[in-house]
Computed example of a mutant assay.
Amino acid sequence: MPEDIRPDRRAFIRQQTRPLPVPSLPEITLFQADEVTPLWLMTEADMTRDRLSPPFWAFAWSGGQALGRYVLDNPHIVRGKRVLDIASGSGLVGIAAMQAGAASVLCNDIDPYAEAAVALNAEQNGVTLAFTGRNLLDNGPPEADVILAGDICYEKGMTDAMLSYFRRAAGQNIEVYVGDPHRSYFPTSGLSKLADYDILTNADIEDATVKPASVWKLET
């Protein structure tokens, strides 16, 4: 366990979630919350004090599930490559990449609870994931061959920043794959659709128990 992961965050995640198979990727088990509201309330004090994001790391979001499913079904896109799982949340997509044979995976999320969640979920699935909490969008693309991004289009500002970052990465011959459940801010141009899925999800976090989602590749 990296020294900078606070043990209390790991303990908190173990107390408020439990290991469950990912609905559309039963090959992967994550520490997940059964209900949204209790966990949101438990983290509210930290969120207010530290300006943290809501606990996205506690759920298997449909865009991430779709992208993880695509990676497992098409391992050649990551096999032997250096992968960045950006806005990683639980680390679901990064775990899928390691299971598919990636040489290495760097997970990135600015929420410090996500670092603990990624560490726990990596251990749970017997893989090794590196982690950085830096805001990568303010810098140039890292040393990577592939960028994977699940469910990043829930806000316009974030979507625009991510797409700008992805275009810079594509200019350095980094392949970019995005999983999205048809969010309002998902761009309508500049990406090629690779697959469609009907993703099993939690009705507490989505508007249905089955959510259509697609996987796209950034055009170069």
Rank of each mutant, 00 (worst) to 15 (best):
P2G: 02
I5M: 03
R6M: 09
P7R: 11
R9T: 03
R10C: 11
F12V: 04
Q16G: 03
Q16I: 14
L20Q: 15
P23Y: 14
P23C: 14
P26T: 12
I28W: 00
F31S: 06
Q32E: 04
D34H: 05
E35W: 03
T37I: 10
T37L: 11
E44V: 09
E44P: 07
M47W: 02
D50P: 02
D50E: 10
R51C: 04
L52V: 10
L52N: 11
S53N: 08
P54Q: 04
P54N: 04
F56N: 06
W57N: 02
W57R: 02
W61H: 07
W61T: 06
Q65C: 13
A66Q: 00
G68D: 01
R69D: 08
Y70F: 13
Y70E: 03
V71E: 00
D73Y: 04
I77N: 08
K81N: 09
K81E: 12
D85Q: 01
D85I: 00
A87H: 00
G89Y: 04
G91D: 00
I95T: 08
A102R: 11
A103L: 15
A103G: 13
S104V: 08
N108G: 08
D109E: 09
I110K: 05
A114T: 10
A117M: 08
A119Y: 12
A119D: 14
A122T: 06
A122C: 06
N125I: 07
N125T: 06
F131K: 08
G133A: 01
N139R: 10
P141V: 07
P142E: 06
C153E: 10
K156D: 15
D160R: 15
A161H: 11
M162C: 15
M162P: 06
S164R: 12
F166K: 05
R167D: 14
Q172G: 05
N173Y: 14
I174L: 10
G179P: 01
R183G: 08
S184P: 01
F186D: 03
P187N: 03
T188N: 12
S189W: 08
S192Y: 02
S192R: 12
S192C: 07
L194P: 05
A195F: 03
A195I: 06
D196F: 01
I199R: 02
I199Y: 02
I199Q: 04
D204F: 05
I205Q: 11
E206D: 14
K211M: 14
W216V: 04
E219S: 12
E219C: 09
T220V: 10
